[in-house]
Amino acid sequence: MFFKFLWHDMSYGIFSRKKKFLAGFCIFFCLSFYHFLTLRIYEITFPEYFSISSTTADYFMALVGGCGVPEIQEGIDVGLTMPVMWLGFMLWMQFVSLYYPFTDLLGFGKHVMLLSGNRSSWWFSKCLWAVGNTAINYILIFLISTLCGLCTGGKLSLQTNWYVARELNMRLDLLTFEDTKNILPFFFLSLLVLIALSLLQMTLSLAISPMFSYFFLAAYLIAGIYYQNAAFLGNYAMAARSDIYISTGLSAGPGILVALWVIFLNVFLGYLLLGHKDLLGGGEG
């Protein structure tokens, strides 16, 4: 029975969502293109950067790298440049996982659940759906940024150049590498954190409404921009705050453990919550 749920979720909850994929393509192609424009501005301001050829990994990092920690210099808060691209990326990733489970729960999924005879299969199937949906959308965004990089003359590579650190407001003297660094470790850490956040959002949606859970997640992510702290999971999804790239960053190892803990906790809590939840619809005549 569980595999029937899963098949339904994968086919209807992911593969038939062509409009969302198209919207994601347009948004992230444009956002990736912004990196190209930034490069051109750098070219005018700092011509020395352009002894380096940009790579497709630079495009991906510029999109999802986040921002360095706001600094205080000589008693003055130099402030923070809001990582708009990162925030847009994170909010999009949460948005694509937001509504499907609940439209399904109040619609066709309710029939499927009744016919299956239990609630738990529905929940565990939705958890796997969340993992699959997040991974597919994430890989799609990676491919879009790569395509944009190739279209604008970037070299196909998984090595990001040091100059991207400037775009992410990182302190260059604290970088853990000199010229280039492979993005794969961050790629997987960021994906794991996104999966944890989407499951957290799904569990919260059972307790409050999907819309409020989305706003809660947005506030949680924004708070994480101001504080580099393990309690704010979003920090682990920022390359600019990871010890892979910057010596003062958060360790990736505990990040993996925290993300896994959040995943398992939410799968379990969601199972308990759904088991006791009243499945109400619109009218109550």
């Binding site: 309710k110 009744l114 006791h276 009243d278 499945l279 109400l280 619809g281 009218g283 109550e284 005549g285």
Partner: peptide, 14 residues
């Protein structure tokens, strides 16, 4: 409360 009663019978609410 008609619909609520049906929902109770269906096991959708407790």
């Amino acid at each position: 409360g008609k619909t609520m009663f049906l929902r109770l019978l269906a096991g959708l609410i407790y």
